[in-house]
Design a protein around this nucleic acid. Structure first.
Lengths: 209, 209
DNA sequence: ACCTGAACACCGTTCAAGT
DNA sequence: ACCTGAACACCGTTCAAGT
């Protein structure tokens, strides 16, 4: 577990860190693991320290309190999700329906496999320290939903109207299905099937044409 | 605080309870208050006992552990919500659009004013003890959404298709907006405005007619 | 700079004992 | 039947002290 790294203040000098090459990163990885296994409520700093082989007071050097760790975890999750959604594009020449279904499935797939992490992302209170980075990542994520909408509107394929409002309609549906999956109302399989149905209903409407 | 009540085993005998007429009910009321003020994470059994003027071990006579209290609270919340939705009907002769908007606003209104309680209702794990009552109340609630759908389908006002699937589309949208409001993404006012927009989009569809 | 060990004030849960 | 008081094993946070 001992790592050799260059000192931050003397590039030519080799120095041994006390216990870890990067305790902060190690803690974040272990915390995400614990989060996935046992949920937020059961995530304890002391147990995390034990699992990392470090004293219970050590994490406080990197995270001023438990909330700071959760915030950092939320940031990791949000940035990862934004990246995934940015990379989730339907094949060239795909129809509007296909493009939205692809996006929706990517969202739901992430939500199903990272339920606890996603809950953290959407949690009520974050320290102001990370809130700037969180909103930046949040904006990236929201844009992956809003941009396809403005594009489709420009092509006359979608109704006119505030694209943010339309994005909210889509985002709320996806978030709702994700929540129903996270709490067991919907099985993961049922959720995947549902998301296609919901996108269809949203695109074509519930009132007969 | 001393209450006089009939003993459960001798109707003709007056008896004084030790401290409370009904500690269980008192605890539930105080717990909901604490939940609303400070959130689930800050709800402590010991503080609850202090606020109720009882020893910290007393609640365990009525709730075997903290989860049992949260479950009981969830049941209260779900039954109240089911009652509210059952009572939320648009005036006679209201259009389909008006009927669904009325229902959606009632859901959102409850969600905004009982955010923490609703979170408990939709929480991941409940003890099997209450799960029967919870599913009964849950079914009542779901029916307030599904019944208007089957009614409208019978009248030819709504597309054919599994009413549960259509109900899920509506329910997921509402739940999503409620979640965005609970976590501060949407202000309560914006949420009320959004819900009307979302219902409109869902009814008429995002693809131009 | 980074971590340890002890200390403090809180938890939830259990259990003999009181009324 | 209902509640108390003490005890136990856990927390998160802080802080002097070690390397």
């Amino acid at each position: 577990m001992l790592a050799v790294s260059t000192s931050p203040y003397a590039g030519h000098m080799l120095t041994r860190r006390y216990h870890h090459g990067d305790l902060r990163a190690t803690l974040l990885v272990a915390a995400e693991e614990m989060l996935r296994e046992k949920g937020v409520a059961a995530l304890s700093l002391r147990e995390l320290a034990r699992a990392t082989g470090v004293s219970h007071a050590a994490p406080s050097r990197h995270f001023k309190d438990k909330q700071a760790l959760l915030d950092a975890l939320a940031l990791v999750g949000l940035e990862r999700m934004a990246g995934i959604l940015e990379g989730a594009s339907a094949p060239d020449g795909a129809s509007l329906h296909e493009r939205f279904t692809t996006l929706a499935r990517a969202y739901l797939d992430f939500a199903v496999h990272n339920a606890e992490l996603l809950e953290l992302v959407f949690a009520r209170k974050h320290d102001p320290d990370v809130s700037d980075q969180l909103s930046a990542a949040g904006e990236r994520m929201v844009l992956t939903i809003v941009r396809p909408i403005t594009d489709a509107q420009a092509a006359g394929e979608l109704v006119e109207g505030d694209p943010w409002s339309i994005g909210l309609a889509l985002g709320a549906s996806l978030h709702g299905i994700a929540a129903f999956t996270a709490n067991g109302t919907l099985s993961p399989e049922a959720a995947i099937a549902s998301v296609d149905e919901v996108v269809k209903h949203l695109l074509y409407g519930l009132i007969p044409r």
